[in-house]
Design a protein around this nucleic acid. Structure first.
Length: 915
RNA sequence: AGGCCCGUAGCUCAGUUGGUCUAGAGCGCUUCCUUGACACGGAAGAGGUCGAUGGUUCGAAUCCAUUCGGGCCUACCA
């Protein structure tokens, strides 16, 4: 049995087999050639967290990446898709802490070293889940290059970048207000704080002015912070308070004297126009405090509890303290009022704990110089966004960027390469552990206990994974990477940081230079410093009701379950077909069901092909190597010329679609072609030619079979990037397991060939299809029994008549017609006839016709035609239209009106005839 | 507070610089057909004044303005 395909399509077996085969054979491994600049395509996989499991968003992202990557590979580009996983500082640490908790252990009790060891242990056991899932998807990544962000070489590069930024004056350490998560016990960046509108209260508190009976009322949403107040601010322009300037107030509950200052912090329009100033617990107040040299009194500690400075409130949780403070203020007559107020409260992105602005010593990146370049490369078009509206979103963010807090009080991550001298408190930043203090020569040095924000290291990946800071060939050949496909949720977290860091470290003086080569000038280097040239931002995958998928809602679809149910190919196809830019995807499994049907259709078409090839005993081995579309196709008949032309046209469309990241257009184009044209028409049309037993010659049968196989093989290549498994399976079957290449993934992507396009054949085929559909239509209207063959009459001009005559058999078979008779005059007037501008056709069948209904229909039809004609003629009579509209459009309308006029006459006559 | 996106058939969505659009597809629905590739199939069909209003234009689902409805992002206003 040469072409052995099981009777039914079962994706699970096929997909498992090929996924393993691809990996085992390392088809997707590439290395940079020794010299030259090959046509290449490179893409960095957004590294999933080691803690990660595949979700629908990944599935979409991976599908799109794999399509693009396979497409480029088949086009002959040296294609690198680089996989890896991210150590994901907070996420992973939380995961392991949770595991420890079940054993009754605590991180702090274990100590740093033991804990980190435990995390590595955890990573070894559970960290690979997502990679295994990726393998199931058929992701054609270069597994030989798989990295982990904490690998030795990458960690070295991280340290190198830190030191260089420090040397460049772009990293500083200081005591500032940062976002502090009391649960995670670490600082987090602005981006890791998610704001949420909640119903809160605005408390108005009266502060008595010392030396008078006057008092000043301030408003706050956080009354507990008043314990740390060191001033009250009013606006300079606010005349209500002119008389109080320079005076002091007595801070209630604490009985501390604090000054009334004038500062822009206070806006006259808001509340009373007076504002309490708490430099230790509010970023604005912090800034105001610096302006006025105010003391910083911390009253809340790292666990969000009141500390000793809070007097009698010490030890209370911040929310307990709030209640207590409010109660005491009220009791003592300082509470003026409480109003309902909506607050945008900041929560920790990871654990949803309410973030506390806290004064602490942290490391920051001074981002302005980095942002300047990151803006320039996008404005100059060195990086393009798809959809392009993300360009503006990116730029707006970049224009307003703040310094980036990069230190985290965690244990899992890249430790900051800074040491503090125990003797003189000097901070030493170095690549390797320093032996002695650079200032006092003391030997008691302690490394900073903080680790870096995970996004700092992921921001470096485009160049560090290719060997930076060494001047490697990989870096030379594959950087800038060609494309990045990712979600908008990490546009700022990751995409923006990669651009900032890439355009810093791949620019002189940091850009590695190969020995004996001249360094590039900044102007030359800038376009080449970008981490990627294209960014494609994919949509969010929602559930069928357009709801965001979330665990709490319980509407999370597991891609693995979908895959098990419908197959990876069908799932991939669904996501591709639904990937229209800028719109979220409402994932509906019913769609996937439909695409599994498509896979099944392909499967059965293949079985049909093999059945015939085997019956005829022919062996067809289509060429599939570089530069090949459909080869050795013998276009003997109209349907041959037509399908070949259509194939090439579709190949061109698919290519265009993929170039523009229109995965939906590409998928749909192939779907419509394969099902709607190849299966529904072409296969049906050639069936008689394969029937050597009854009506066909052996020779013509062999030609037909050959064409069928060659076209099918090319179609498989066209479809392979979207549905890699089923195409690989059938493709190998075509060659009976002895394919000229080891994998379809290595074959050539079909390129449209102009000489194989045939507009005339397409036009003729369209007429024939129209005729056949018309007859089927009439049959259905007249309720002719399905099986009954009926004669038809056709009236047409010579050209069309000749066409129908030549393809009489096709008409007879596909429309179930017993005989085609040509008549010399129009049949339009006959009831039970149908007319187009090119032909009239009448089904000869005795069946009473509902004349009234028929008339109504015709009337409506005539109205429509006349409206259309009027419309067209108005345009054609308009000079401005003729002058401005493209010639193609004018010609198209002219032609259409001509055809419509023929139709109108026929319809009119028929109506008259019917009375 | 600022910005972005969406509103097209019962459902989910296409519709690429305004014109060849009689606005398409899948699913669902109706009728017929188990014909040797496929019922995960074949054939035929019903179904939409393109959220609303106004404007620009010879021409608008497409551009502009306003408006209603839905979603999202950014933001240090107590």
């Amino acid at each position: 049995m040469p072409h052995d395909l099981p009777k039914s399509y079962d994706p699970s077996d096929i997909e498992k087999r090929w996924a393993e085969f691809w990996i085992k054979n390392e088809f997707f491994h590439v290395s940079a050639p020794e010299s030259g600049a090959p046509s290449m395509f490179s893409l960095l996989l957004p590294p999933p967290n080691v803690t990660g499991r595949l979700h629908m968003g990944h599935m979409l992202n991976h599908t799109q990446m794999d399509i693009v990557v396979r497409w480029h590979r088949m086009r002959g580009d040296l294609t690198l898709w680089l996989p890896g996983t991210d150590h994901a500082g907070i996420a992973t640490q939380m995961m392991v802490e949770r595991q420890l908790a079940t054993e009754g252990k605590k991180r702090r009790e274990m100590g740093r070293e033991a804990f980190i060891e435990r995390v590595w242990e955890w990573k070894k056991h559970y960290g690979g889940v997502i990679l295994d899932q990726m393998k199931r998807l058929g992701d054609s990544v270069d597994w030989d290059r798989e990295y982990f962000t904490m690998d030795q070489n990458l960690s070295c590069a991280v340290r190198e970048t830190f030191v260089r930024l420090y040397e460049d004056g772009l990293i500083y350490r200081g005591k500032y207000i940062v976002n502090w998560c009391p649960r995670c016990g670490t600082a987090i960046s602005d981006l890791e704080v998610k704001h949420e509108d909640v119903a809160g209260k605005l408390y108005e508190i009266r502060y008595p002015v010392i030396g008078s009976n006057d008092s000043i009322t301030v408003a706050t949403t956080r009354p507990e912070t008043m314990l740390g107040d060191t001033a009250v601010a009013v606006n300079e322009k606010d005349e209500r308070y002119t008389h109080l300037r320079g005076k002091n107030v007595l801070l209630p509950l604490m009985n501390r004297e604090i000054p009334i200052i004038t500062d822009e912090l206070a806006q006259p329009e808001f509340g009373t126009g007076a504002v309490k100033v708490t430099p230790s617990h509010d970023p604005n107040d912090f800034a105001a405090g610096l302006r006025h040299n105010l003391p910083q009194i911390e009253v809340i500690d790292e666990h969000a509890r009141m500390n000793a400075n809070a007097g009698k409130y010490a030890g209370l949780d911040r929310f307990e303290a709030r209640q207590q403070v409010v109660a005491d203020l009220e009791a003592q007559g300082f509470l003026v009022g409480i109003k309902d107020y909506t607050i945008a409260i900041g929560k920790c992105d990871r654990c949803k704990t309410i973030v506390e602005p806290r004064l602490s010593e942290q490391w920051f990146v001074k981002v302005e110089p980095l942002a300047k370049r990151a803006i320039e490369v996008v404005e100059k078009g060195y990086i393009r966004f798809t959809p392009d509206n993300y360009k503006q979103i990116y730029l707006n963010w970049m224009y307003n960027i703040h310094d980036w807090c990069i230190s985290r009080q965690l244990w899992w991550g890249h430790r900051i390469p800074a040491w503090k001298c125990a003797d003189c408190a000097e901070i030493i930043v170095a690549r390797t552990t320093p032996a002695a203090c650079t200032k006092c020569n003391g030997a008691k040095l302690e490394q900073d206990s903080d680790v870096l924000d995970t996004w700092f290291s992921s921001g470096l990946l485009p160049f560090t994974t290719l060997g930076w800071p060494e001047a490697t060939r990989d870096l030379e050949v594959f950087y800038p990477t060609s494309l990045l496909i990712t979600g908008f949720d990490i546009l700022f977290f990751w995409v923006a940081r990669m651009i900032m860091l890439g355009c810093w470290f791949m620019m002189p003086p940091h850009r590695p230079v190969r020995e004996g080569e001249q360094p590039l000038s900044p102007e030359e280097a800038l376009p080449l410093s970008v981490p990627f040239k294209d960014v494609y931002i994919h949509a969010l995958v929602r559930d069928a009701e357009r709801q965001k998928m979330s665990k709490t809602k319980g509407n999370v679809l597991d891609p693995i379950e979908i895959i098990e149910k419908y197959g990876t190919d069908a799932t991939r196809f669904t996501l591709a077909a639904m990937s229209s830019p800028g719109t979220d995807i409402a994932f509906n499994p019913s769609r996937t069901e439909g695409y599994r049907a498509f896979a099944n259709k392909i499967w059965n078409a293949a079985r049909f092909m093999f059945m015939n090839v085997d019956r005829l005993g022919v062996s067809v081995r289509p060429a599939c190597e570089a530069g090949t579309g459909v080869s050795d196709f013998q276009a003997a008949t109209l349907e041959d010329k037509w399908i070949l032309s259509r194939f090439n046209r579709v190949a061109a469309e698919v290519d265009e679609a993929l170039k523009a990241y229109r995965f939906d257009d590409a998928a749909r184009g192939i779907y419509d072609f394969f099902w709607g044209e190849f299966c529904d028409w072409y296969i049906e049309l050639i069936k008689p030619r394969l029937d050597v037993e009854n009506r066909a010659s052996r020779e013509s049968a062999e030609v037909a079979a050959g064409n069928l196989v060659r076209l099918f093989e090319a179609a498989l290549r066209l479809l392979h990037p979207v549905m890699p498994f089923i195409t690989e399976e059938i493709w190998h079957a075509i060659y009976e397991g002895k394919a000229p290449l080891k994998s379809l993934a290595l074959a050539a992507y079909p390129q449209a060939a102009q000489e194989q396009m045939d507009l005339e054949a397409e036009t003729e085929m369209a007429i024939l299809q129209d005729l056949i559909v018309s007859v089927r239509n009439l049959r259905a209207e007249m309720k002719v029994e399905q099986k009954l063959k009926v004669p038809i009459q056709v009236f047409a001009e010579d050209g069309v008549r000749g066409l129908v005559e030549q393809n009489r058999g096709a008409v007879e078979r596909l429309a179930n017609v017993s005989d085609v008779a040509f008549v010399g005059e129009s049949l339009a007037k006959l009831a039970g006839a149908r007319h187009t501008s090119r032909f009239d056709v009448h089904v000869v069948y005795e069946r009473p016709i509902d004349v009234a209904a028929e008339r109504e229909k015709l009337k409506k039809e005539l109205e429509r035609i006349e409206k259309e004609i009027a419309n067209g003629q108005r345009q054609l009579g308009n000079e401005q239209f003729l002058a401005k509209a493209p010639a193609q459009v004018v010609e198209g309308i002219r032609k259409k009106v001509g055809e419509l006029e023929v139709l109108r006459e026929k319809t009119k006559r028929k109506l008259e005839e019917m009375g």
